[in-house]
Design a protein around this nucleic acid. Structure first.
Lengths: 336, 336
DNA sequence: TTATCTTATGACAACGTTGTCAAAATTGTT
DNA sequence: AACAATTTTGACAACGTTGTCATAAGATAA
């Protein structure tokens, strides 16, 4: 039988309450007794029963990261630090993949309406899922957004400065002689997509280069989208000298298509992505991109959530900086 | 205040036990009363308190996938089906990234010795982590291995038939004319690494081609390992006509190095990986590889674990088939 | 020493479920 | 109609903690 607090108390010849005090590092236990209890804990191999604690403390002890399969690269190593952080605050970190399918909805409802969570971290594009909004309306739950579409929202959030990142990268391309830079747009329901496009146009405007709508095509932010966009572009008349893609997935599609068509990158055409997905460092040539601190965003969001749960004040939104990552896929414009 | 079973009972004018019966779909409730209770549940928005249930049922309600950051591609979409499956059996699926660092160890100990889990799924190379073994020795916990190093182990496991996969791919390379096929080895503590090498040598043997130890170099199963191995090989005398890498990570490193050195793939040298990591479909040329059904392995392992927890018999080990995935990175041997 | 204040300790009732078992209600049998 | 057999229902004690509050034990002051 696994030992309970009673076994420890009996062994240390004291009350269960005293053991409880020792476990929870509470004051009002004399050193001698404290030691006796600690010895008893060690001897019995006692560990407090989580469910009993949670029951009386009225906490579920679970937080959840709500994510869609598509947008972020949430591989375990990215999550590791968040899992770590959560556990050190005595929370389990769950993961829910919200694909808006019936089964996913049902489970989401069971999580939220079933009061199985203490808090929620919502990554895009889940923040624009009306089913979720509805659910949260009826069943209030502390939550934090990552990169939400609507920043005027009352809920706290963490985001990257996509606009500046995109502007900087575009400016860099202009600096190395590019004048015809195509922008491959993404999902317009994502804050990041919109901001990146804005950053692109702002950079052009700063150099007095008119925005040419023909240079802004839709790639849906997917590999296939990027791939198809290139096929379309290169069959047309004037080529761009660079493709700036709303994210790395699209950029990899572009790269693939160009290499397939024997277009030399970056000699003939430069390719840039956004996000600094690990894949970008594995393809040849390495993908020039903008680093988006996904891991930092998640841990920042979790920290925010924990501070809310801890009764802290509703911390102010955080904007994390992005940073250029220059690799082989970009270079001077042909003839520049 | 969130409603409890008492609120429902009061409203339905019956005992809490009856409500409990209805919740748990147990017999011995007359239809009329059952309906009244259901109405009361709907009216109050009642959902049972998980911790109370788990406390009395003596379950933690948590399973954990133990993974190392390196070996498998456990992105959320791969985990999605397992998370789904777990939740439909009323378990939370946790994730622990075991990097054998002090902090990771501490948390692993807290999970296992603290009896915070009902079961464990262990992915390689965690199965060879002595700290874990020790921990499980002292604190027995139902667990299932994925691709364990030692298959004679008493614990049930799920694995892929790496040997056959590697043999098939090697045979394919032989079929299209390759004779000097380099094999880039991986972590010798991984069952998969060993089996893949064996598959390679078996295929050679079947065709009467002697195994040349010079053609078997160590790439550690990493991108950098593959990259460095190529640099080493190509500076030497006779080139291989194909590189068969223990996994896709190494293969991507090989591909990168070759492209950097202007070696044409597959015209000059073919490159193959193992695992069918999503990256392999995103690079140009697409990576020829062997599909390893990671998602199926995880769900199979979970199903096994659930059946054990459900008191089923210790189901027999499962070997899932692998399958060739031929893409652009492999082709006929030069001059063949 | 005695009165007073502070600090330690423990009894006992929560927390919200499910399991056990006895009692009540219903059904079937003669 | 009376009795037995069955089904339905509920009272109450678990489960293993923490919080409340009363009391016991020390420390301090006179």
């Amino acid at each position: 039988m696994t030992p309970t607090i009673h076994d420890v108390a009996r062994r240390a010849d004291c009350s269960i309450k005293t053991v409880s005090r020792v476990i929870n590092a509470q004051p009002h236990v004399r050193p001698a007794l404290r030691e006796r209890v600690e010895a008893a804990i060690a001897a019995t191999g006692y560990a407090p029963n989580l469910n009993a604690q949670r029951l009386v403390k009225k906490r579920t002890g679970a937080l959840c990261v709500l994510t869609s399969t598509s947008e972020y690269y949430l591989a375990p190593d990215v999550l590791a630090s968040a899992i770590d952080l959560a556990r050190s605050s005595d929370y389990d970190l769950l993961l829910h993949i919200d694909n808006d399918q019936p089964s996913s909805r049902k489970q989401l409802a069971s999580l939220i309406a079933g009061r199985r969570l203490d808090g929620l971290i919502i990554t895009p594009p889940c923040d624009t899922n009306p089913f979720l909004t509805e659910l949260l309306n009826h069943h209030p739950l502390p939550h934090v957004f990552i990169d939400p579409f609507n920043r005027d929202n009352a809920s706290p959030y963490v985001a990257t400065d996509d606009l500046v990142g995109a502007r900087d990268l575009t400016t860099h391309l202009l600096d190395i002689g590019h004048r015809r830079i195509a922008f491959l747009k993404g999902n317009p329901n994502l804050r990041a997509s919109v901001d990146r496009l804005t950053g692109y146009t702002q950079a052009l405007a700063q150099r007095g280069i008119p925005f040419d709508p023909k240079l802004a095509a839709n790639a849906m932010g997917t590999f296939e989208g990027g791939y198809n966009a290139v096929r379309l572009y290169l069959s047309g008349g004037t080529r761009p000298t660079a493709f700036f893609c709303v994210n790395d997935h699209a950029a990899l599609g572009v790269l693939f298509a160009l290499q397939e068509m024997n277009v030399r990158v970056p000699r003939d055409i430069s390719v840039c992505g956004f996000g600094n997905h690990p894949l970008g460092a594995r393809v040849f040539p390495g993908l020039t991109t903008v680093h988006q601190p996904v891991q930092e965003m998640i841990t920042a969001a979790l920290r925010l959530l924990l501070s809310i749960l801890g009764g802290g004040q509703p911390a102010s939104p955080t904007l994390l900086p992005s940073a250029l990552v220059l690799r082989g896929s970009s270079g001077s414009a042909p003839g520049a």
